[in-house]
């Protein structure tokens, strides 16, 4: 196990490298912290994805902050 920080090898400001991990990208482009299961089916009920209203867009984030251990992950 490594204890080191694993930073991006970022070539330029605000210009993510090609290798931006998909899950980190989805955490952000979907703006709600999407949970992806192994087969990558998104819990769409939680993601108001197609927004025809900007108001909905700007008010839809950060309503749900998960409790740690909510999924009872193995430790």
């Amino acid at each position: 196990m490594t204890h080191g920080v694993v930073p991006w090898d970022s070539p330029g400001p605000l210009d993510g490298p090609i290798g931006v991990p998909l899950v980190d990208l989805l955490d952000r482009v979907l703006a709600t912290g999407v949970v992806i299961s192994g087969d990558l089916v998104i819990a769409i009920a939680d993601v108001p994805l197609v927004r025809l209203s900007l108001h909905a867009l700007l008010s839809s984030v950060s309503e749900r902050v998960p409790a740690p251990w909510a999924d009872g992950g193995p430790l």
Partner: peptide, 17 residues
């Protein structure tokens, strides 16, 4: 602990509030 830092991102997560 193992810590992974990613960025810089365009601030996707901080424009909705």
């Amino acid at each position: 602990a193992q810590i992974e830092l990613s960025g810089p991102w365009v601030p996707y997560s901080f424009v909705g509030e």
